[in-house]
């Protein structure tokens, strides 16, 4: 009896450490299409956990195959509604990469979606940028490298204010150098140019305003030309297209899709 009690207490004691750990252990990689090896999956889980913790947002990867007939976008939306991921709690800040292996090579869908903070920092345009950058790796079946790139991109984009393009020239050092050199050259150039004294007369210095006037004027309409151009739909600037939407559970999200 006493032995059982000790065993029970021991088990309880162990479970105190293990059980909360089991509950707290979040899953980031939902590899339903079985495209990663066990090693890769473990590694990606660890990295996803690190990146998620660092950026305070859940960064997930979902894969599916033809056994689920849904399109990748509603698939991600339903997953979000059902699982309610989020760094800050149920149905919270999340970025999801969805890979759909239903079709053949070149006809398989990928989708990047952002929820809440994810919607703000990985907006439609940035999602499209990520999609575009993942396609080369995905096209040669390099899913593991594509996943790493996805983490890195989300990690980078989460740190960049939504008002600037994280991959644009505005944040590039060469651009800062170029503008700085232009400003320096322009200011010092005008200083040198003005060293000898500036011309300080202008068109009104000698004007006799009392005796200057328009005697007659005419503005006669001649003809008009009209040209029309088709307005290009914003496709996110690349192959990635789509845009966000709303889950059935009422969670708005950003997103972009592409094929690989």
């Amino acid at each position: 009896m006493r032995k059982y009690l000790i065993t029970a207490i021991f088990l309880l004691f162990i479970s105190l450490f293990i059980v909360p750990g089991v509950f707290a252990e979040k899953q980031y990689i939902y590899d339903d299409a079985n495209i990663f090896t066990d090693n890769e999956r473990t590694d990606l889980e660890n990295r996803a956990a690190e990146y998620s913790e660092e950026n305070e947002i859940d960064i997930l990867i979902l894969t599916k195959d033809e056994s689920d007939g849904r399109d990748i976008e509603p698939y991600i939306e339903d997953f979000y509604d059902e699982q309610g991921p989020g760094y800050d709690g149920d149905h919270g800040d999340t970025v999801i990469l969805g890979l759909d292996f239903s079709g053949g090579p070149g006809d398989r869908d990928l989708y990047v979606a952002g929820f809440y903070a994810g919607e703000k920092y990985v907006d439609n345009k940035r999602a499209a940028q990520i999609v575009d950058q993942l396609i080369p790796d995905l096209s040669v079946n390099d899913y593991y490298d594509a996943s790493l790139l996805y983490f890195e991109k989300v990690d980078k984009y989460m740190g960049v204010s939504p008002i600037v393009n994280p991959d644009g020239f505005l944040l590039q050092t060469w651009f800062h150098l170029l503008v700085a050199v232009i400003i320096g050259a322009a200011i010092v150039g005008s200083m040198i140019f003005n060293m000898g004294g500036r011309v300080t007369t202008n068109a009104s210095t000698y004007l006799d305003a009392n005796n200057s006037r328009v005697k007659s004027k005419s503005d006669r309409y001649l003809r008009q030309t009209v040209t029309k151009t088709k307005i290009q739909k914003n496709t996110g600037g690349g192959r990635g297209g789509g845009g966000g939407g709303m889950t059935r559970g009422g969670h708005s999200h950003s997103g972009a899709r592409g094929k690989f």
Partner: peptide, 9 residues
Amino acid sequence: YYRVRRDID
């Protein structure tokens, strides 16, 4: 398009 004419002093 407009034909513009001015006579100015």
